[in-house]
Computed example of a mutant assay.
Amino acid sequence: MDIKLGQGIGEVKFGMTRAEVVSILGEPSEKEVLPPFDGELGGSEAWHYDTIELSASFDEEEGFKLCSLAASSTDSLFEGIDLIGLSQEEVLQQIEILGLGDVEIETIANEEGEEQIVASIPEVSLNLWFEDGHLSEIQWGPFWDEEEEEYIWPE
């Protein structure tokens, strides 16, 4: 399945309803209801598709439209390349070649105290998550209109 920045993956597009996503991917392996995050007005629902290693998030504030995806499968190709499992250096080289924008790197500790590195490219709504120096997950969403402060939903 091809990851399309600002668009989605395969036939799944940002802005779809939960019913539309189910019609394409089927029922998820697991559903999580998440409370509002730091100043957000509504919570969200995260759906996990274990067999294809894909997660989908629907935000209440956006009428439960599909607002982000996260892929951790080597079957999820980014610009035709399998980035999952590559070293941080190799991934960042590919990102530079693609000219996607400035990369912001941050170290984040989870609840168990384990550290992950996230490389973010806000211009294209992309987060690259690294564990033990290798890419473990690609997370992306629709593009963001800074002036209007709203998502730019794909056609």
Rank of each mutant, 00 (worst) to 15 (best):
I24H: 10
Q116C: 06
E147F: 09
V12T: 13
F64T: 03
E89T: 11
D145R: 08
S136F: 00
G113D: 09
L128P: 01
G85R: 09
V22I: 15
S136R: 01
D50W: 12
K4V: 14
G8K: 00
E150H: 05
Y151M: 04
H48K: 14
I84A: 01
I81L: 13
V12G: 05
L69W: 01
I108N: 10
W144G: 02
G99K: 14
I152N: 07
E40S: 11
A19M: 12
H134L: 09
E45M: 12
E148Q: 14
Q7T: 09
L25S: 05
L54R: 02
L128D: 00
I3W: 03
S136E: 08
C67E: 00
E90R: 09
L86Y: 05
E149F: 02
I117P: 00
Q116S: 14
I117W: 00
T17S: 15
S44A: 12
G15R: 04
E96D: 15
L128V: 05
L83S: 02
S23V: 13
F14Q: 01
Q116H: 12
G43H: 07
E60Q: 14
Y49I: 03
P36R: 04
E60R: 08
L41N: 08
W129H: 05
A46L: 07
P35S: 14
S87W: 04
L66S: 02
E137Y: 00
M1A: 14
E61D: 15
E148V: 05
I24F: 14
V21H: 03
L126I: 04
G42M: 10
S57N: 10
F14G: 02
G39C: 06
I97D: 10
E111V: 11
E40N: 12
S76R: 02
K4R: 13
Q94R: 13
G85P: 13
E146S: 10
H134Q: 14
E112A: 11
D38P: 02
D102H: 07
L66N: 00
R18P: 02
S120F: 04
E149C: 06
G43R: 06
C67V: 13
E89I: 05
P35D: 13
E104K: 11
V33Y: 04
T74Q: 13
I9S: 03
L86W: 03
K4F: 07
A109L: 11
E45C: 06
D59T: 08
Q94T: 11
P122M: 06
S72C: 09
L83E: 00
A46W: 01
D38H: 12
D102E: 14
N110M: 02
